[in-house]
Design a binder for these strands. Structure first.
Lengths: 125, 125
DNA sequence: ATGGCTATTTATAACTC
DNA sequence: TGAGTTATAAATAGCCA
């Protein structure tokens, strides 16, 4: 019944999504098992081709992500992250519902902070 | 030779670490396969019990993480992330090598930004 | 779309070097 | 400690309810 398959894009879309669902479930299960069995922490984030987001972390996704960002720090990395975050609209989305002038003010402050970090990184590099 | 095992903490430390290594490799492989076969994006981050960090993403870890944070935005989330980042020493580590007065100045700016975001979040909430 | 059901493939626990 | 080997457990591709 079952055949060996090659790991390459499944052309048939319904089948592709079924496979995504099954394998994603397997991946999440393996992740939990890894953490429980070996006293470790892990997070998995997966976006389906249709844009849905699935996330699992042990003990919590945020715990592992905070630890990751805490450890991978460097001046360049921080500068890049601030820049990317602003470009990606993360701060703008966050400020949804604010008055427009408040939003402008917030963005100006964040831009200034970015410049400041860039300048300091350049001096120290 | 092989026996069925229960998914609970392996008490023997060397054995535990061996299992961590093998299962982590399997998890990374599965993650890549999932992405290639189903047109999806995923990232796995794992910390061993000894504190080592292992990370894999498709197409890149940063790509998936930026997408994740972009989508999960909210005023509270941003406020929480900024606060956590400062507490975790992410900014301080990033600024290693800077003069002390430059560092103080940078931290003051970041603290001010945090307060500003908190204030705006409170007003809009 | 979901949730089983196997026949098979794949991952891996125990072992060895 | 790290890298194979092998027998067995676990995951899953193709089907079907």
């Amino acid at each position: 019944m079952r055949r060996k398959i090659e790991i390459k894009l499944i052309e048939d879309k319904p089948k592709r999504h079924t496979t995504f669902t099954k394998r994603r479930q397997g991946l999440m299960k393996k992740t939990e098992q890894l953490c429980e069995i070996s006293d470790s922490q892990a997070v998995v984030i997966a976006f389906s081709g249709t844009g849905n987001c699935y996330c699992l972390g042990h003990p919590h996704a945020d715990t592992v992500l905070d630890r990751y960002f805490g450890e991978s720090s460097s001046a360049d990395e921080v500068e890049r992250r601030i820049g990317d975050a602003m470009k990606s609209g993360r701060w703008v989305d966050a400020a949804t519902g604010l008055e427009l002038d408040e939003l402008d003010e917030l963005l100006a402050e964040l831009e200034e902070t970015t410049r400041r970090v860039e300048a300091l990184a350049a001096e120290s590099g």
